[in-house]
């Protein structure tokens, strides 16, 4: 690898680390997690899946503060372990735990399984020449567009939603708000915004998708 490439890669990584905290394997709760949790506690009902749960913080809030029956999934084995530890703790404290499944998006879930699906996706647009290939990148990077994980979520979530089901999806202005809304509408969803907050670098919105 050239020195120049190496330096660019380091710069990208450090700036992301600075903005997002310095855990190396598992994304830890931040402003986006807080906003999704707030919306989910207000709106989640029935059997609820959190995709890409990371540390399991949002799933635990929903399990503890609503009547929803929560399942959390992640691709990252370290995330699954952290989420499971959190679930076991909650179960021991107040009999309000949740299940953790290692999965790639919706692939091991049956059609119509969920009344609510939650997702705080990896959404930071990333230069493909500057990828660094570790679990933190998987947790943060949304590819060149920022929508590499959002697009398959929007395309496939309808399959696992029950009648009257809903998806709550966090979208950042950094990854293109209009493009996500348009894609969801093309998939036949009614889209509304149930929470929104602005920060110096981005505006975060929670979109509710209903068929």
């Amino acid at each position: 690898m050239s020195d120049e490439k190496n330096r660019k890669e380091t710069t990208t990584r450090d700036s992301l680390a600075e903005r997002r905290g310095v855990e190396t394997h598992v994304y830890q709760p931040a402003e986006d997690s807080g906003l999704l949790a707030k919306a989910a506690v207000e709106h989640a009902h029935g059997r609820t899946l959190e995709v890409g749960t990371g540390s399991g913080w949002v799933a635990a809030k929903v399990a503890a503060e609503t009547d929803a029956d929560v399942v959390a999934s992640d691709l990252n084995p370290h995330a699954c372990e952290q989420a499971k530890a959190r679930a076991d703790e909650l179960q021991a404290e107040r009999k309000d735990g949740f299940d953790v499944v290692r999965a790639d998006l919706f692939s091991p879930f049956v059609d119509g399984a969920f009344d609510t699906v939650l997702f705080n996706p990896p959404y930071l647009p990333t230069d493909p020449d500057n990828e660094w290939s570790d679990w933190m990148e998987v947790a943060l990077s949304g590819g060149e567009s920022g929508r590499e994980l959002i697009d398959p979520f929007v395309d496939d979530v309808g399959r696992v939603l029950a009648d009257g089901g809903q998806a709550l999806l966090l979208v950042s202005s950094l990854s293109g708000y209009d493009e996500v809304v348009e894609r969801a509408e093309d998939q036949g969803f009614d889209v509304d915004v149930v929470a929104e907050e602005s920060y110096p670098f981005e505006t975060l919105s929670i979109l509710r998708l209903r068929l």
């Binding site: 499971k84 076991d88 499944v101 290692r102 999965a103 790639d104 692939s107």
Partner: peptide
């Protein structure tokens, strides 16, 4: 065969289960 270890089922398809 999809293993369940420490209470966590690993339901990744076999070609993604590389850890």
């Amino acid at each position: 065969v999809y293993p369940i270890e420490d209470g966590i089922p690993n339901l990744l398809p076999p070609d993604m289960r590389d850890d």
